[in-house]
Design a protein around this nucleic acid. Structure first.
Lengths: 199, 199
DNA sequence: ATTGTAATCTTGACAGTGTCAAGATTTTAA
DNA sequence: TTAAAATCTTGACACTGTCAAGATTACAAT
């Protein structure tokens, strides 16, 4: 829905896009407002018309990351509407895939580059929505008798946390080679969920 | 073992200490080599006699964090030498405690502030040692019949990942209030382990 | 269509940052 | 005692986030 008007046209999105590119090519340490502006072909302070500060740009990039993740979860949920167990396992796989396809976005989403996330309503909303999708899957699993009954959101934290933790450790290089030689990350995550499910 | 000699005496440790303090008081975003130097009462380039660059200081702080964590795991392991289940649960509690008592050190340890961890042997060594402690607990649990047999390191990744993930999400503010009103983080972590254990 | 206002973007400046080069000081070892 | 090595300082540079002032453009009300 780019509004191709005004001076640049759609600078806000162009800046986000430039930021994502820098993130992918040069990593989180090289992301700067000035470089983003340069890449978008505007002056070094032009971003301030759209983002109050660097944090705000980071929030926008993180938010986009969550939207992408959330959409991917959505399609997994829909394509296994009748099979909650598959929803759970495939969601986890989608999560793994997302994290490794967008390593630096994943890092920015979860690695406290964003200091006061509460100040960014769009970010809060989509991250909560994402978590809620997991809760719904857990509830579906409970109804199907695959997961024990109980507070679904607490159980979702446990399962989601498990998947998240394994991925986070892997991305930080904290999982040793010898482990990853035995099993791929996808397998480890699946095994983790299988174990969590069977009572 | 401070070697109270040379100009400053023990600048290297003083810089690390200053860094930790800034981290605790002002957060990760405010940590700078110059501020650390100022705090230690030396010129702005003095740190370069002890750290090749900022990353290197961050590595040293992270390493110290892991040492602290590792020691705390050690004492848990020793004080429940005859009870592997307790070792596991109490280790997790120690991990929670460490993370929340040293939020910004925890972040720096795991939040990719350190870009090429492999280049810092001391860091690699102590982080591997820490993981190995968890593996040993898992093995003890297996021998006690509390955890199913199988590759202990893979199982350790799963359990450690679970604990780590829940904490990481909590520290990032990604766990909703409604969940934390029902159960404290310590309880959630314990519940997670209990579930992971019982087959 | 004109005009005033708001949105957008630029130029210029400032302080703070990481890091290098050159040199001064001090410790240590021969 | 002296030469070398370690430690620390001064000064500089490019790069960063951000502010202030002003220029340009779009748009809404008349």
């Amino acid at each position: 829905m780019k509004s191709k008007t005004y001076h640049h046209g759609d600078l806000k999105n162009a800046l986000i896009k430039a930021g994502v590119e820098i993130l992918a090519k040069e990593g989180i340490g090289k992301l700067s407002l000035r470089k983003v502006a340069l890449k978008a072909g505007v002056s070094h302070t032009a971003p301030y018309s759209h983002f109050s500060d660097k944090q705000s740009l980071i929030a926008a990039i993180s938010t986009e990351g969550f939207q992408k993740l959330s959409k991917s979860l959505d399609s997994v949920i829909k394509s296994h509407a009748d099979n909650p167990k598959k929803q759970l396992i495939e969601s986890a796989q989608a999560y793994v895939k997302f994290a490794f396809a967008n390593k630096d976005i994943f890092k920015i989403m979860f690695s406290s580059a964003l200091e006061k996330e509460k100040e960014y309503p769009a970010f809060v909303e989509v991250s909560q929505k994402t978590f809620h999708q997991v809760v719904e899957i857990v509830e579906a699993c409970q109804e199907a008798g695959i997961i024990k009954s109980g507070e679904a959101d607490v159980l979702a934290v446990i399962i989601w946390g498990q998947v998240h933790g394994i991925i986070a450790l892997a991305i930080e290089g904290q999982i040793s080679h010898t482990v990853l030689e035995k099993k791929s990350l996808a397998e480890i995550v699946t095994q983790a969920i299988e174990q969590a499910i069977k009572k």
